[in-house]
Simulated scan of single mutants.
Amino acid sequence: MLTGDNERTADSIGWEIGIDKVYAELLPEDKLEVIRQLQQQYPSVAMVGDGINDAPALAQASVGIAMGTAGSDVALETADVVLMADRLEKLEYAIRLGRRSERIVKQNIIFALSFIVILLIANFTGNMTLPLGVLGHEGSTVLVILSGLRLLKD
């Protein structure tokens, strides 16, 4: 946890929410330096912030996450992700949704391209009429759209 608050308050909050490492009484450039040090140790470093003092660290982090309603304009503009409800527990949902979206998009692209290849082969071998080709293509488009709607589930 990186904070500009005094050490006693920061340690108390860190202990309450289960954070092992707390950095307190930090200026914006100090937060930036801590992020750089963490990036040397770990491949990805996320930073959650809401104020103008967090903007440099948000920009440096692998993923900058701003708390939307309480956040300053600079933090919101700098961050990669903005949590509009100011509820950090929504971050886990956003990550799961992003991964699921990526998986479904890849599946849809593979399906669509495969179907087009099948239609092309059928066309060049003379086994496909124009109306059947159009119907097949448009039908596969509808299937891709319906597949994408799976993201609404949850």
Results as ranks from 00 to 15, higher is better:
Thr3Ala: 11
Asp5Ile: 13
Glu7Cys: 08
Glu7Val: 10
Arg8Leu: 14
Arg8Trp: 10
Arg8His: 12
Thr9Ala: 13
Thr9Ile: 08
Asp11Gly: 14
Asp11Ala: 15
Ile13Arg: 10
Val22Thr: 05
Glu25Ser: 15
Glu25Gly: 12
Glu29Leu: 05
Leu32His: 07
Leu32Lys: 08
Leu32Ile: 03
Glu33Cys: 09
Glu33Lys: 14
Val34Ala: 11
Ile35Glu: 08
Arg36Cys: 08
Arg36Lys: 14
Gln37Arg: 14
Tyr42Leu: 06
Pro43Cys: 06
Met47Tyr: 05
Asp50His: 08
Ile52Met: 07
Asn53Trp: 03
Asp54Gly: 04
Ala55Tyr: 04
Gln60Tyr: 09
Val63Gln: 05
Gly64Asn: 01
Gly64Thr: 03
Met67Gly: 02
Met67Leu: 13
Gly68Phe: 11
Thr69Cys: 05
Thr69Asp: 14
Ala75Pro: 06
Asp80Met: 02
Val82Trp: 00
Leu83Gln: 05
Met84Gly: 03
Met84Phe: 04
Ala85Arg: 15
Ala85Glu: 15
Leu88Gln: 13
Glu92Leu: 09
Ala94Ile: 02
Arg96Ile: 00
Arg96Trp: 00
Gly98Trp: 02
Glu102Ser: 11
Val105Trp: 00
Asn108Arg: 01
Ile109Glu: 00
Ala112Ser: 11
Ser114Asn: 10
Ser114Trp: 10
Ile118Tyr: 01
Leu120Ile: 15
Ala122Arg: 10
Asn123Leu: 13
Phe124Asn: 14
Met128Ser: 11
Thr129Pro: 04
Pro131Val: 13
Gly133Leu: 05
Leu135Arg: 01
Leu135Phe: 15
Glu138Tyr: 06
Ser140Ala: 15
Ser140His: 12
Thr141Pro: 06
Val144Trp: 07
Leu146Arg: 07
Leu146Glu: 05
Ser147Asp: 14
Arg150Asn: 02
Asp154Gly: 00
